[in-house]
Design a binder for these strands. Structure first.
Lengths: 197, 197
DNA sequence: AGACACCTTGACTGGTTGGTCAGGTCTGCT
DNA sequence: AGCAGACCTGACCAACCAGTCAAGGTGTCT
C-alpha cells in the first residue's frame, strides 16, 4: 500500500535528487543538498529510500524509459528519412525540455556507467541493435544513404545532447544567449544532407 | 629555480591527477587516489601544490593549450573545405589519443565549468569568434555551404568528443569493440556532405 | 475520542577527506 | 666531510558526510 503522503514525498525527493545529481554528479551530491531542495530533513529522505545509492538507482530506472521513448517511437513501417528526421527532432526537443535528465545520464556514462545495471544496458543494446537493423533495411530499400547505422545513432545522440550537456560552454561562447538558438534548422540541414541517398 | 626532482614530481602528480580527475570528476577524486597513482605520499602532493583545487587548476591550465591547438592550427589562407575537414580529423585524433583530457573538460563543463576561470573562457570565446568569422569568409567565397559557423564548430566538438566522453556507452552497445571503429570514414562522409556548397 | 500505523526529526556515530605540522632524510655544493 | 636548503612523511586535526535511532508528532479509521 502506498499512501498519498508517500507518493508526494517520493516525488519531491526524486525531483530534488535529479536537480542535485545532474548538477553535481553522484559523488558530488550530498544528501543535505537534496534534503534542502526537497524541503525535507535528511533522515526523512532515508525513511523513503534506503540509501543515496538507492535514490540514484530509482532515478535512473524511472528516467530511462522517458529517455529512450523517442527511440521506441520510431515506426518500422514509416519512411526511413522521415522517421530518422523525426527521431532527431524528438531528441533535440528532449534536450530542450529535459536538460537535467540529459546531464544525469551524461554524468553517469562519463564516469564509466558504474551504476547502470547490466539489465539496463542490455535493454539499451537490444533496442539499438533493433534500430540499427531497421536502418539497414531502409538503406537496402534505397530510402537513405549508405551510412553506418550505429554511427548514425551515435551522431544523433552526440549532436542533440551536446546542447544540454555542454550548455555552460555554449553559453560562454554565445554570450549567454540560448544555446539552442538556431540549432534546429542547422541539424535539419545536416541530417537532410547526410541521409539523402 | 626549479630542480630536476621538482619537474619530475610535478609531472608525476599532474599525470596521476589527470588519470583520477578525468575518471571521477573533481569532487569524486580524492588526494589519496591521486597519491596512490602518482606513487607519492599525500602530504608530498601538498608540498608541490597548495590544494586539490590548485592541482585541478594547474591541469586545466596546462591542457587547454593542447586542447585548443587544432583550432589554432586552422589556416585562414587555406581552402575552406579542406581546412575544416582537417580540423575535424585532428579533433577526432585528439579523442583517440587524449581521451582522459577530453573527459576532464567534459566533467568540468558538465558541472557548469565552475573552475574554468573567466580568463580561460574569454580566450576560448575570442578564438571561436575568430574562427566563426573565418568560416563566414569561406562561405562568402563560395567554398563551403551556407551553414551557421557556430553550430558547425559545436557539431565538430560534439561528434568527435562523443567517442571519448561516452566511450563506456558505446562499448556496451558495440560489445566492447573499439568505439572509434569506423568513426573516421563516417565523419568524413558526414562533413563532406555538410560542407559541399 | 482513542488507537494504531505512519511519518518526522534532533542528536548522534563511524568513517572519510582535505589539509597541517614537527621533525626527519636526502642532495648538491664547497 | 659538513652544511644549507630542498624534499619527504607519520601522526594528527577539523570538517564533512552517509546512515542510525529513539523519541515524539500526525493522519486516518472506527
Amino acid at each position: 500500500m502506498t499512501t498519498r503522503i508517500q507518493r508526494r514525498n517520493r516525488r519531491k525527493i526524486l525531483d530534488a535528487a535529479l536537480e542535485v545529481f545532474s548538477a553535481q554528479g553522484f559523488r558530488g551530491a550530498t544528501l543535505d543538498q537534496i534534503a534542502g531542495v526537497a524541503g525535507l530533513s535528511k533522515p526523512n529522505l532515508l525513511y523513503y529510500f534506503d540509501s543515496k545509492e538507492a535514490m540514484h538507482r530509482a532515478l535512473l530506472d524511472e528516467l530511462l524509459d522517458i529517455w529512450l521513448a523517442p527511440l521506441r517511437a520510431m515506426n518500422p513501417e514509416g519512411d526511413g528519412r522521415a522517421e530518422i528526421m523525426a527521431y532527431m527532432r524528438r531528441k533535440l526537443q528532449m534536450s530542450r525540455e529535459y536538460p537535467r535528465e540529459s546531464r544525469l545520464f551524461a554524468n553517469e556514462v562519463l564516469q564509466g556507467a558504474p551504476r547502470l545495471g547490466d539489465e539496463i544496458s542490455g535493454d539499451l543494446k537490444t533496442l539499438v541493435d533493433e534500430t540499427a537493423a531497421l536502418i539497414r533495411r531502409w538503406i537496402k530499400a534505397g530510402q537513405i544513404a549508405r551510412i553506418d547505422p550505429y554511427h548514425l545513432i551515435f551522431s544523433i545522440w552526440a549532436l542533440t545532447q551536446h546542447y544540454a550537456d555542454f550548455d555552460a560552454q555554449i553559453r560562454m561562447i554565445r554570450d549567454g544567449a540560448d544555446p539552442m538558438d538556431g540549432a534546429e534548422p542547422y541539424l535539419e540541414e545536416l541530417f537532410d544532407r547526410l541521409l539523402k541517398p
